[in-house]
Amino acid sequence: MKNLLFLLIIFFLYQQDSFALPSQDREVKIYKNIRCLACQGQTLNDSNSDFANDLKKVIKRKLDNNETDQQIYSYLTARYGDWILFNPPVKQSTLLLWFFPVFILVIGLLILYKRTVFGKSKLS
């Protein structure tokens, strides 16, 4: 049980960008969530293509104009669709994508809990 708890803590820490990448600023964070549509599976942050550089400049300008992350993402998805985002927004068509893994995790934890508790009670 202790090991399981330890693994869960590591898992959740890994999920938190602030722990994984402490020096990452907002600009890079946004670039990392944007797909370079002119490249093969690269983020905007990793790409030096013309398209990526143009988009970086546009995003930088929007950040300087104090636009929120959500406003920037909305601007981009209106022009290029949800495909441009690595983390698609939570909406009806993506509910399954977001919550199915959580559902499976809960089922798994329940099975694990049932087995460990019942296993212990059987032993005692």
Binding site: L37, A38, D50, D54, L55, K57, V58, R61, R79
Partner: peptide
């Protein structure tokens, strides 16, 4: 000159 007009209308290149 900087590609921003193309991006504004949803251009790729």
């Amino acid at each position: 000159s900087d590609g921003s007009k193309s991006i504004e209308i949803g251009g790729y290149g």
